[in-house]
């Protein structure tokens, strides 16, 4: 059985690959990704083009590197939206547990969950026009109920704990208790959920840009690269494999990281190790 730390180490290692790629690409890219050079099209793997070139003659490595920027940025901000709106909603509902406010927030949650996320994302991007920003909004909205639900659930069990009662006896308000006692004890759960939503965001962004609703050309994105590759699958399978593997590595890395963090951050497990 894989030890928690092993899964954590693997996760970090895999996550570092796209992160480093994206960071380097801010300062330097092997080739310009906006420049089309048909005479250079479909070059095989070589020293100058480690992943070859695509059907417009663009360097695949450079496109993957810049594409990493897009994927990471979109997924990261979408998680941010989810945390920023979802966590306060969840804490709020837990604070007013059993009241109509709690009911209302949970109903809202169920409602958002009931909508087919992809269809609504398409609707949003169709209304507002396809762009990376609108993809962020579309993905981010569906992160809100996820974080609201998970923080409410965990907060509810914390509210049953006696240390919260003694804070109440000291006269602390619900808001204060939520920020001082509840939130810090939710952190580990939220961090784990954030890595999972991050990985789902990477997948969703790839899906949206595959059907042409994400980042627009000439900004490269992994999903768009796959869409372009589809017609060439028989000719140059490499065009589909490379961006696919990039997505898989990132998502796999984030999931392993989430699993590893879950074990490393859980105070229950930490306590039991001490004993």
């Amino acid at each position: 059985m894989i030890r928690p730390s092993t899964s954590l180490q693997f996760g970090i290692l895999l996550c570092l690959i796209p992160m480093i790629m994206a960071t380097i690409s801010f300062f330097w890219q092997p080739f310009d990704v906006t420049e089309l050079n048909i005479s250079n099209r479909l070059q095989p793997v070589s020293l100058t083009h480690p992943f070859g070139t695509d059907h417009f003659g663009r360097d695949m490595l450079s496109m993957i590197m810049v594409g990493a920027q897009t994927s990471i940025a979109v997924a990261f901000v979408a998680v941010g939206i989810g945390v920023l709106f979802g966590v306060p909603l969840g804490l709020f509902a837990a604070n007013w547990r059993g009241s109509f406010i709690d009911d209302g927030i949970m109903r809202f949650n169920d409602l958002v969950f009931a909508f087919p996320s992809l269809v609504i994302a398409i609707l949003i991007t169709a209304i507002a026009g396809p762009s990376a920003f609108n993809a962020i909004v579309a993905i981010g909205i569906f992160n809100i109920p996820v974080f609201a639900r998970i923080s409410r659930g965990a907060a509810l069990s914390l509210w049953q704990r006696e240390f919260i009662l003694s804070a109440q006896v000291a006269g602390k308000t619900g808001l204060r208790i939520s920020t001082e006692h509840v939130l810090p004890n939710l952190m580990h759960i939220l961090i784990v959920q954030a890595t999972i939503q991050f990985s789902l965001g990477i997948l969703a962004e790839a899906g949206l840009s595959y059907i042409g609703l994400g980042a627009q050309p000439p900004t490269p994105s992994w999903g768009r690269m796959l869409a372009d590759a589809q017609t060439m699958v028989s000719l140059a399978p490499r065009l589909a494999i490379v961006p696919g593997v990039a997505i898989i590595i990132t998502v796999l890395g984030l999931n392993l990281l989430g699993d590893g963090l879950r074990d490393a951050l859980d105070p229950k497990l930490r306590g039991s190790m001490k004993k």
Partner: peptide, 8 residues
């Protein structure tokens, strides 16, 4: 399996 995008 979770990491593989279904359309890819």
């Amino acid at each position: 399996g979770i990491a593989i995008p279904n359309f890819w």
